[in-house]
Simulated scan of single mutants.
Amino acid sequence: MKFVKLLLSSLFVVSFMAACTTTGSTSADGTKRSGPKPLVQQVNGFSRAQVEQSILAGGKVKAWSMKKIKPGIIDGTILVNNQRANIRVTYSAEQYSIQYVSGGNVVTGNDKVPTNYGRWQKKLSEAIQNSLAKKARR
């Protein structure tokens, strides 16, 4: 029953966060920054190592190239149909955050946020949640 509650609440939060993603946001100091909002997901009940493993596994499942920079930070890149996105995933035992860093069209050189970035971000988060759910069943 605990697993079902965890899975359902995770899917609800992921869906809600994906719906709230926009192409601009305001930081804590009130300055405008460009790019999509970070997708933040709560993951209480897991160790930082388990969250890290799930981020790396979720990235692999969704064809992201993931690289651990240091504990708590993983950078990722995806290339789909000449569209590239670079992200930074910060994480702890309590949550992770997927933040857009840069991207664009590698052929034309434009640096606009790829049209499908929101979907890629959501699918990556879902893959991470699926990996965590598998760990919860063990």
Rank of each mutant, 00 (worst) to 15 (best):
Y91R: 01
K32L: 15
K122P: 00
G45L: 02
F3A: 13
S125G: 09
V43K: 11
P114W: 12
V89C: 07
Q129P: 00
P114R: 10
S34K: 11
L56M: 10
A49Y: 00
G58W: 07
V40H: 08
A133P: 02
A57L: 06
N82W: 10
G35E: 11
L39Y: 03
T108P: 03
D29N: 15
W64A: 03
K5S: 14
S25V: 05
Y117K: 10
V61D: 09
V40M: 09
L6C: 01
G103E: 03
A63Y: 10
N130L: 14
N81S: 10
D75V: 01
E94R: 14
Q129S: 09
A19T: 08
S10H: 04
V51L: 04
V61Q: 11
V106C: 06
P71F: 02
E94K: 14
D29H: 14
Q83L: 12
D75C: 00
A93Y: 04
A19D: 09
Q121V: 12
K67C: 00
Q99P: 00
S97N: 02
R84H: 02
M1H: 10
K134D: 09
K5A: 12
K2L: 11
L7R: 09
V43Q: 10
D75P: 01
L6K: 12
K123M: 14
S65E: 13
Y100A: 06
G58C: 04
K5E: 15
T90E: 12
K62E: 14
G58E: 03
F46T: 04
I128Q: 04
K122W: 03
G45N: 04
V61H: 07
G58V: 05
R119Y: 13
A93C: 02
T26C: 08
P71M: 01
L39T: 09
N81P: 02
L132K: 07
A127M: 08
L39A: 05
D75L: 05
S125P: 00
K62I: 05
K70W: 03
I55N: 02
V106Q: 11
V13R: 06
V61W: 07
Y117I: 01
K122R: 14
L11K: 12
K60G: 00
R138A: 07
K67E: 05
M1F: 11
I78A: 04
D29G: 08
W64V: 05
K112A: 14
G118M: 13
K62R: 13
M1P: 03
